[in-house]
Design a protein around this nucleic acid. Structure first.
Length: 489
RNA sequence: GGGCCAGUAGCUCAGUUGGCAGAGCUGCGGACUUUUAAUCCGCGAGUCGUGGGUUCGAGUCCCACCUGGCCCA
């Protein structure tokens, strides 16, 4: 069958398949074998002065081909970057040169040759031989606009990664950030652990869980919404300093800062309090920013943000007093609700006083906190796992790190009094009975663990995806999650 | 869940008042032994998101739906 002459999708695929067939007919494997990738593009460019004239072996994906009759150029992209390949018929021979000119954008090849610089100054590998490593059968997106369609970028992330360097860079920044956080915590004696994702009860946060079913036990299970209560059990067990970086699942809507599955870092340090955790947080984030981006300044949603410690400490009650005009501890429920309405906060859906306060914080306080701020000392009623402050038992020893107007995490001096914890759970159960299906469940075994004795402990949760957004300047959480949730096509 | 916007060639995008479906890149053929968005000549390329409706005639107007984005809840 002769391939169609046109450039329709069919003919373009057919043209590539025809080339595939020609390779096979010539006894060549279009999906070749191991290739000793001795060199990477960026290294050759960097070390050009020392290595010019020497042998080089590179492998990667052909991104452009420029044929000039008896000579040809190709840009080869590998994980490190791009380097030009220079091919001449008198170096390669007729057959190998002819094959080189038939390369398509998207093919993987291996090249061995000599490092040189062209007349125009481009560092290149002059090919002495080349091998097809994987024939690309699908045309790649256009070479200078790349792939813009966000739906295609999410659904076919591999194409996004091939053609959009900024997409690749975001995930490299994220990886360096996570590595740095592990190194930071490991260096301070924290132990990385793994706790269950499946459980009979999803506890430790205010959220609706996903439900699944275990067939053999014939029981419904929930996917975790937090790792908190398991990690605190490990503090009871004497591990003293633990952390987990893992996926949490919350059965909620999607937004620029919410994905149903997301990555959370939780850290617990025995014999510490939330003041210690504030220092740990600002140091860890600044350290991760330097490791991932080279500095502590980031640009996020149009704001220049300085992440270097110390971060601002701001009392939530003071902030609310300023923005709302009432003391939410002294005021009645109705007064708080009325003040919220006056300020334009929609509290129609808020059934409890805590939810009204949350809405006010979300709409009046957080958007104003661009530079890193520890928003601290929340009302106890919205902090069921945090210890009360000794000087004012209506206030929890809790903080949320706010940067760029949104919360990066949540932390407190952990509640280690089992009787107080039981009361808080009962209050949550009462809220649940009033119709708040996000209220914390009563975790009997966790109370039992606390009765064995949990030392005073400071704890922290950090949204890894959100921190990655901050460090990469991403506008949407989907830009820092490799394969965000999509409806089926 | 509500509002607004988008979906046209593999990709990036035009498409006027309802009147033959367009460009660039990509692809194919040709010229070219230092180009780099290579250049030059030539040729192709479509389920206009899906399904209905109005109309002599629909990419364009109307309705429903699908997918995505933004905003709100």
């Amino acid at each position: 069958m002769t391939p169609p002459q046109g450039g329709s999708p069919e003919s373009e695929l057919a043209a590539r398949r025809a080339k595939l067939a020609r390779l096979r007919a010539a006894g060549l494997d279009p999906f070749g074998a191991r290739f000793a990738q001795d060199d990477h593009a960026a290294d050759l460019v960097r070390d050009f002065e020392a290595r010019t004239g020497q042998a080089a072996r590179v492998a990667g994906r052909v991104m452009t081909v420029r044929v000039h009759g008896r000579a040809a150029f190709a840009d080869l992209q590998d994980a490190s970057g791009t380097i030009q390949i220079y091919a001449r018929v008198d170096k390669l021979g007729e057959g190998a040169f002819e094959g080189f000119t038939e390369l398509d954008r998207g093919d993987h090849i291996g090249v061995e040759g000599t490092l040189m610089r062209t007349r125009r100054g481009e560092v290149s590998v002059e090919a002495g031989a080349w091998t097809m490593l994987a024939k690309g059968l699908r045309p790649l997106p256009e070479k200078w606009h790349g792939l813009r369609d966000v739906e295609l970028r999410y659904r076919h992330r591999y194409v996004d990664l091939i053609v959009n360097p900024e997409a690749r860079d975001r995930f490299l920044v994220r990886a360096r950030m996570v590595t740095a956080m592990r190194r930071f915590l490991d260096a301070r004696g924290f132990v990385e652990v793994e706790t269950p994702i499946l459980g009979s009860m999803a506890a430790g946060a205010t959220a609706r869980p996903f439900t699944t079913h275990h067939n053999a036990l014939d029981m419904d299970l929930h996917l975790r919404i937090a790792t908190e209560l398991h990690l605190k059990r490990l503090i009871v067990g004497g591990l003293e300093r633990v952390y987990e970086i893992g996926r949490d699942f919350r059965n909620e809507g999607l937004s620029w800062r919410h994905n149903p599955e997301f990555t959370m870092l939780e850290v617990y340090q025995a014999f510490a309090d939330y003041e210690d955790i504030m220092r740990l947080t600002e140091e860890m984030v600044a350290d991760a920013a330097i490791a991932a981006t080279g500095g502590t300044k980031v640009t996020f949603r149009g704001h220049e943000i300085e992440l270097a410690p110390p971060w601002r400490r701001l009392s939530m009650l003071a902030a609310l007093r300023e923005q709302l005009g009432v003391d939410v501890l002294a005021a009645s429920d109705d007064e708080v609700r009325a003040a919220a309405r006056t300020k334009g906060v929609d509290v129609a859906g808020a059934s409890t006083r805590g939810q009204v306060i949350d809405a006010c914080v979300d709409h009046l306080v957080m958007p104003r906190l661009i530079q890193p701020t520890f928003l601290m000392d929340h009302p106890v009623e919205i902090s069921p796992l945090a210890k009360k402050r000794q000087d004012d038992p209506r206030v929890a020893a809790r903080f949320e790190p706010i940067v760029g107007g949104f919360e990066l995490g949540n932390a407190f001096t952990e509640l280690n009094d089992p009787d107080d914890q039981r009361e808080r759970f009962l209050e949550q159960a009462a809220e649940r009975a009033r119709g708040n299906d996000e209220a914390h469940p009563y975790d009997e075994d966790f109370i039992l663990a606390l009765e064995y004795g949990m030392p005073p402990t400071g704890g922290l949760g950090v949204g890894i995806d959100r921190l990655a957004m901050l460090l990469t300047g991403a506008e949407s959480i989907r830009d820092v999650i490799l394969f965000p949730l999509m409806r089926p096509e």
